[in-house]
Structure formats: structure tokens, C-alpha cells
Design a protein around this nucleic acid. Structure first.
Length: 317
DNA sequence: GACATTTGACCAGT
DNA sequence: ACTGGTCAAATGTC
């Protein structure tokens, strides 16, 4: 099956699952059933997105779905790579400092590219807290590389790290490399982090609603043209002055979900706007896969069920 | 005061 | 020796 057909199949399956979900949300189904359905919908779109990306990069069929949009604690089966788990389990003891860096190079690694041109600030937020611990100009690169580690490194001995670098070719693209796996669980964060204030909760809810309404208004998937993935359009918004490094750095920090930034934008961004020229793979591309993607889908069943934006012809309504 | 970022210095790998 | 990655003191923000 070619990429386009696979994408259509995945999207169709997602739509079917969404319909099913919508129907059972009106009945008295268990929350477990609902969660399973939601996870399957997410996985389905996840695979479709991967296919689009791989299709564009060479028209190949993607590797087995890594469920890049799924949370690690998902109850649905995820294609957990054995290599990944082995590498994860072999994370070095921090005491062995002399061999630490060498060992770290073998940690599971995932690189994604996120375009800041999309206005999808929240798309890089993976629900984890990150703390910047360094910045360095890399030889041959126009822009500095920023180093982040998990905020709960000491609390949960979480050794997850990530590096963020602006692309030389396209300054609006952030290349984010994740190293290691979180051993902290975002679900237990409230024991460490104070509960969200009502104001923040309201902001978050508004973002959900903005997301959905803007998706409905602006996002269209032309299923008849899926062999040309660029037709899968995501919107665009203007970026700040490129030459101003400080501005970029501030934006970068904002994107990384630092507590002073946008931890509250945990879903697919909050400011979709229509733009015909941007394309999905330019906005997001994955060059390696793990089960712990930074990309998050709305997890609230209400958000997913409300006016799920496909019609029968495969278009977003 | 607590916590985050910045940035020069230091360390380890090649 | 060079480079990338990390540390930690200084500084900023809430």
C-alpha cells in the first residue's frame, strides 16, 4: 500500500473511531473504553502524520508506528522498541561521571523539527518541566544551542534532557533533540507543583476552544491529493525579528515550557491561522522515534468529541 | 526567598 | 588542541 493510501486508511479509521467515541459519550460507557478509543484515535492520526512526513522525505512507508503523540503511560499498546527499552534501562549511574558522557551518547534519542512559523507555540510542550542549564555556540552553526534538563531531575532522579537549536537553513525551524527518557511521571507532578490556579485553568480551557474553532475554520486535509503531502496545510503566522537573538532566545524559552513561559499550552497550540503555503512536514518532522513524544494531543474527551472536524468526504469541516 | 536563566569556566571525548 | 556538554556563580523574576 502506498503512503497516500495508508494515510487515507489511517484518517478514515480515526474518523470511524471518533464517530464511535461520539456515540458512546452519549451513552453510559466506562471511562476506560473512552480512553482506549481516544488513544486509538491519537495513534491513528499519529501514524498518518508519520506517513505524510516519510512520504515527503522519499515516498517510503514509515517504520512501525511509534505512537509519537501518545503519552508513555498510555493504556493502549504502543510499539515500544526493544532497543529503546534496552537503552533506557542501561542509563548510566550518575556516579560514574568519568564514563557518563560516553554512556549518554547511547541513550535513546529523538529529534524533531518544529516551525515557529506556524504560531503553534504549544506544540513543543510535552507536559514536562524543563530547566535550561546551558547554552553554547556550535561550530558552523549560526545560532546557539540551548541545553535543558528535566525540572524534576533531583526530585525523581529524572535524567531526561533536550537540546534546542534553530535551523541554519530555516531560522523559523527549531531542531529539538531529546536525550534519555523521563523517569518522572507528569501525572504525579501535582505532588510537587502547586495546583493550577483558576486563572491558568481558564487560559488552558480557552486555548482548547480556540484550537478547536480554529481547526474547524482553517485546517483542511485534501485526501485526493495525499501523495503530495504539501497539500496538507497548517497555518502560519509571522515570526519575530530573526536577527534579534535575544528575542529568539526568549521565544525559545517560551516554547520550551519553562514555568515562567507557557506550561499551560499543553495541547496543539492555541493560535491556528490559515496559510496555504506552509506544510505539515515543514512544521513537524521526526527523524527518530521513541514512545515519549513531546507532541501532545488534546486529552480531554470533551475536546476530542465536540464537533470532531471531519466530514464524510475527508475534509475538515 | 525560591526558583529560573545567563554565561564564563571547566571537563571529557576525539 | 579543539569541540560539545555540563557546572555553578551571578543575576533576574515573581
Amino acid at each position: 500500500m502506498d503512503t497516500g493510501a495508508c494515510v487515507v486508511s489511517e484518517l478514515a479509521q480515526g474518523m470511524e473511531l471518533a464517530m464511535h467515541l461520539k456515540s458512546i459519550l452519549n451513552s453510559e460507557s466506562s471511562s476506560e473504553t473512552i480512553n482506549v478509543l481516544i488513544q486509538e484515535i491519537i495513534s491513528s492520526y499519529d501514524r498518518a502524520l508519520l506517513m505524510v512526513n516519510w512520504g515527503e522525505s522519499g515516498g517510503q512507508t514509515p517504520p512501525p508506528a511509534p505512537a509519537m503523540l501518545s503519552q508513555p503511560e498510555s493504556s493502549v499498546s504502543i510499539d515500544d522498541s526493544q532497543d529503546f527499552n534496552q537503552a533506557f534501562n542501561n542509563q548510566p549511574d550518575e556516579k560514574v561521571l568519568s564514563k557518563k558522557r560516553k554512556a549518554m551518547s547511547t541513550w535513546p534519542q529523538e529529534q524533531i523539527r518544529v516551525s515557529t512559523d506556524s504560531g503553534l507555540e504549544g506544540i513543543t510542550d510535552d507536559g514536562y518541566g524543563w530547566r535550561k542549564y546551558g547554552q553554547k555556540f556550535i561550530l558552523g552553526a549560526k545560532f546557539p544551542r540551548s541545553y535543558y534538563r528535566c525540572t524534576y531531575r533531583h526530585v525523581h532522579n529524572c535524567m531526561a534532557r533536550k537540546q534546542v537549536q534553530r535551523s541554519d537553513e530555516d531560522p523559523t525551524v527549531l531542531e529539538i533533540t531529546y536525550k534519555g527518557q523521563h523517569t518522572c511521571n507528569p501525572a504525579v507532578k501535582p505532588s510537587v507543583v502547586p495546583p493550577e490556579s483558576p486563572e491558568k485553568h481558564e487560559i488552558k480551557q480557552n486555548n482548547h476552544q480556540n484550537l478547536l474553532s480554529n481547526l474547524k475554520e482553517n485546517l483542511r486535509v485534501n485526501t485526493s491529493d495525499l501523495d503530495a503531502p504539501s497539500s496538507f496545510s497548517f497555518p502560519s503566522a509571522s515570526f519575530e525579528t530573526i536577527e534579534n537573538y535575544q528575542q529568539f532566545n526568549s521565544l525559545s524559552n517560551f516554547l520550551q515550557g519553562s514555568p515562567s513561559g507557557s506550561n499551560y499550552f499543553t495541547e496543539w497550540g492555541n493560535d491556528f491561522q490559515h496559510h496555504d503555503d506552509s506544510n505539515l512536514s515543514g512544521m513537524i518532522s521526526t527523524t527518530a522515534s521513541t514512545t515519549n513524544s513531546p507532541l501532545a494531543f488534546p486529552s480531554d474527551p470533551q475536546d476530542l468529541s465536540a464537533n470532531f472536524p471531519f466530514d464524510n468526504s475527508g475534509f475538515f469541516i
